[in-house]
């Protein structure tokens, strides 16, 4: 359905879908850690910002162009995540949340104050979309759309395969009882660190598309506001699944885009929606869907009898 969308839609819908997809990458990076490890990381946007800023700096200073700048962006994001991952590895629960909050804010402060490199609040403007290997000109939104769609789907498949592998079982084991995992002889710090790196990788890919699509990289992208939005979207859709994260991002973004054209108080409406979902369906949209499907099967069973 998504692959044929551009044929019918106008540019507006394509733009919305593109935005949903790069924010979706950020949300599934968050959701992956939250659902599989039970860790709520507020510094998921750090990798997003690092890759975005790297590309913006390399491109505007004419140092490297597309495939290489993106590659350097991902590698740099992973290098920084390596250290961050080691730092947060020993904590869990509220302490993990607080630690990631601090580290996320640290990254934000650096982006804000290292003016000579990041140009502070204004951000780096004028990042042009790449000529992909000189074959396709990504200036056109439709080509950009297909490009991000392919990468997006690959990322989702990758995460699903990972969750279903033996590694995924180990992740859930750490979530349920880390002490037991240690006793069974698993290296839980390594397991957590690898998961953290996977999450950072997905997040950094989101950053690439973000910077190329918007053309601007400023500290807002990695602010606390951004982290909280990711968390809200993920909880909104259902924290226990990747699909939930995507649906959550989709709904939040669509509501945001549609309502921001109508009223300035759109955040209030999102807040109320969030409240309703949290109160009535702690498992988010996916929880509601699950309940409906359960009810449906029960209903049909009763009727068939």
């Amino acid at each position: 359905m998504l692959s044929i969308a551009p044929n019918f839609g106008n540019t507006f819908i394509i733009i919305v879908l593109i935005r949903i997809m790069y924010y979706g990458l950020l949300t599934i990076a968050f959701s992956f850690l939250a659902s599989q490890l039970g860790l709520f990381s507020l510094m998921v946007p750090v990798a997003f910002g690092v890759s975005g800023y790297t590309i913006a700096i390399l491109e505007t200073k004419n140092i490297l162009i597309f495939p290489y700048s993106a590659l350097v962006g991902i590698i740099l994001a992973l290098i920084i995540s390596t250290f961050l991952g080691v730092m947060v590895n020993r904590s869990k629960g509220t302490y993990f949340l607080m630690l990631t909050l601090v580290l996320g804010q640290l990254a934000y402060a650096i982006a804000l104050q290292w003016v000579s490199l990041t140009k502070g609040t204004t951000g780096i403007t004028g990042v042009n979309r790449p000529y992909l290997l000189n074959i396709a000109n990504l200036e056109s939104n439709i080509l950009f759309y297909y490009f991000i769609l392919v990468v997006f789907i690959i990322c989702i498949i990758l995460l699903y395969v990972l969750i279903n592998s033996s590694f995924g079982v180990k992740l859930r084991g750490v979530r349920e009882s880390e002490s037991r995992m240690i006793m069974l002889g698993y290296n839980t710090s390594l397991i957590k660190w690898v998961a953290f790196m996977v999450s950072s990788f997905v997040s950094s890919i989101g950053g690439i598309f973000f910077v190329y699509f918007i053309g601007v990289m400023n500290p807002d992208a990695i602010s606390l506001n951004a982290s909280v939005k990711v968390m809200i979207a993920s909880i909104f859709g259902g924290i226990n699944s990747i699909i939930g994260a995507i649906i959550g991002t989709g709904i939040i973004k669509i509501v945001e885009i549609v309502l921001s054209g109508i009223t300035q108080r759109y955040l209030l409406i999102i807040g109320v929606m969030f409240l309703i979902v949290i109160l009535l369906a702690p498992n988010g949209i996916m929880g509601i869907a699950e309940r409906i499907s359960k009810f449906g099967t029960r209903f049909f069973k009763k009727n068939s009898k």
């Binding site: 033996s166 079982v169 859930r172 349920e176 009882s177 037991r180 006793m183 002889g185 290296n187």
Partner: peptide, 30 residues
């Protein structure tokens, strides 16, 4: 701990320390 369990050591706990959110199968798998 890993080396000791490789040498053939296993234990149970006084208070059940299981992976509650996972299936019986996954528990044994781990």
């Amino acid at each position: 701990v890993q080396k000791r369990s490789d040498l053939g050591l296993a234990r149970t706990y006084q208070i059940c320390n299981l992976f509650n959110g996972m299936t019986a199968e996954e528990n044994i798998y781990l």
